[in-house]
Design a protein around this nucleic acid. Structure first.
Lengths: 194, 194
DNA sequence: TTCCCGGGTTCATTATAGCGAACGTGCGTT
DNA sequence: AACGCACGTTCGCTATAATGAACCCGGGAA
């Protein structure tokens, strides 16, 4: 149980086309448009798209570019692997990098995918009504590391209680919450958006 | 429009090949290998690579995949756009998003570029010798938010003293340091690597 | 000087991605 | 029923991506 996200990809996927195929179908259905429609918007032949979605062929960069553009997503979303799920690393757990000559310890919590926006927030909250967020865009993931206090964080149905130093990541494209349980609660939030 | 808010810059680059061309050259030089060598490792003709690097052609997915693999980087590093100063936001400063019905406050510290790897670390350190880091790859930027304690953080020549809640970002492609000034110092570090 | 080797580019050939047209299928309409 | 139509697949044809070999260039070594 290392980190999420892909490490340097030696050869994790033998057949790149299969990813494209899956990603393409998924994204098209998400956009709610027909194969023909997408092909038209992207300015490519629908036969081409049909083959790509059935997993045969070897699309060119321009084709990928056109499709990503028409789907209004980044190209990397088509070629890079997906990731989500709620993951907790308790304070003190997880892989560590310890310095030799200094009392310094770094724990790798996550390796964020090389696409999409990443916003870095500092949260301060006090006990009281929870702060619920509506779903963000599809594929959004949030990472929270609690600095002080105590809080209930995560998908509403599946929130986790964090203590100082605890870390959680969860899909943010479903309703989620941040509820402080102690005075002076503060946290760092990294939002990873499509 | 499909999802809430999501705005993807249509196509800042009309010619995708140009990005590949630049990225390819840059990554190859970074790896310190010759064109012929890279072609051999990737299992593609060196003529192909030559043309791609000079900005002509329209590489297929398999070609890109092979090249990314040989360079030991993610494909998105080749297709997504490039870009990257010490900046401090003191605790309580900076833009705020306050919730209406909850004692919750989120301060946006940074909006990370949509490319490159982003690693999220939790740092714990004790007073003593500083933890100096050698330069990372060109364009690397690190963001640090201090959770507890006190620390001196940033480029060695230009480090900043942080108190709990303070934030700093700085180029990490030059020597930099993290020196705890109090017991129980902890921080969150987001590394942004080209 | 000459020779040789590794760097990169250019050339002619082949494999195939991408294309429009034609085709089968299912659903709604008259 | 017959028709229209939109979705998706299959079928030649053409453009071109990818290839190895041939080629040029500069730096050592002899």
């Amino acid at each position: 149980m290392t980190d999420t996200g892909q490490r340097l990809p030696a050869q994790p996927t033998p057949v790149p086309i299969e990813r494209i195929s899956a990603a393409l179908r998924a994204e098209r259905h998400r956009a709610g448009i027909s194969l023909s429609e997408l092909a038209k918007r992207a300015g490519i032949g629908k036969s081409t798209l049909s083959q790509l979605e059935t997993g045969i062929g070897n699309p060119s960069l321009e084709t990928l570019w056109a499709l990503a553009g028409a789907l209004e997503i980044a190209v990397s979303r088509l070629v890079d692997p997906p990731q989500p799920v709620v993951r907790v690393v308790r304070a003190g757990e997880g892989p560590k990098l310890t310095a030799e000559h200094a009392p310094y310890q770094a724990g790798l919590l996550a390796s964020l995918p090389a696409h999409g926006r990443h916003d870095l927030y500092h949260i301060t909250a006090e006990p009281g009504p929870a702060h619920d967020s509506d779903p963000h865009m599809r594929g959004a993931v949030e990472h929270v590391l609690l600095c002080a206090g105590r809080a209930l964080v995560g998908p509403i149905e599946d929130a986790v209680e964090l203590h100082p130093g605890d870390y959680v990541s969860y899909p943010a494209d479903i309703p989620h919450t941040f509820k402080a349980l102690q005075k002076g609660t503060s946290a760092v939030l990294v939002g990873e958006y499509a």
